[in-house]
């Protein structure tokens, strides 16, 4: 299988990003979530940042792993 099966082509990625932005925006609007209303302390912020970075790494390694296998 080619890379394209695992990685989205660039034009599709742009569309997908837009769709997701719209999805998140409309969902937040529907539930009347005010942006930047969150008050979290710095420690939690750092923990969340690490979590997101770890997940980013996992997704990347997953894609690499799949590409190597095929």
């Amino acid at each position: 299988m080619s890379d394209q099966n695992n990685k989205m082509p660039e034009d599709l990625q742009v569309v997908s990003n837009k769709v997701i932005d719209l999805l998140v925006d409309t969902t937040f609007k529907k539930h009347d979530v005010k942006l930047q209303e969150t008050q979290v302390d710095d420690e939690t912020k750092n923990q969340l940042k690490e979590l997101v970075e770890d997940l980013q790494k996992s997704v990347k390694s997953l894609q690499k792993h799949n590409n190597n296998d095929n």
């Binding site: 997908s16 990003n17 997701i20 932005d21 999805l23 998140v24 925006d25 937040f28 942006l35 930047q36 209303e37 969150t38 979290v40 912020k45 969340l48 940042k49 997101v52 997940l55 980013q56 997704v59």
Partner: peptide, 15 residues
């Protein structure tokens, strides 16, 4: 899902 997560994080100004 990662894109969704990043979009939420960016909007909520968490990071």
């Amino acid at each position: 899902l990662l894109q969704v997560l990043l979009a939420i994080v960016a909007r909520l100004n968490l990071l």
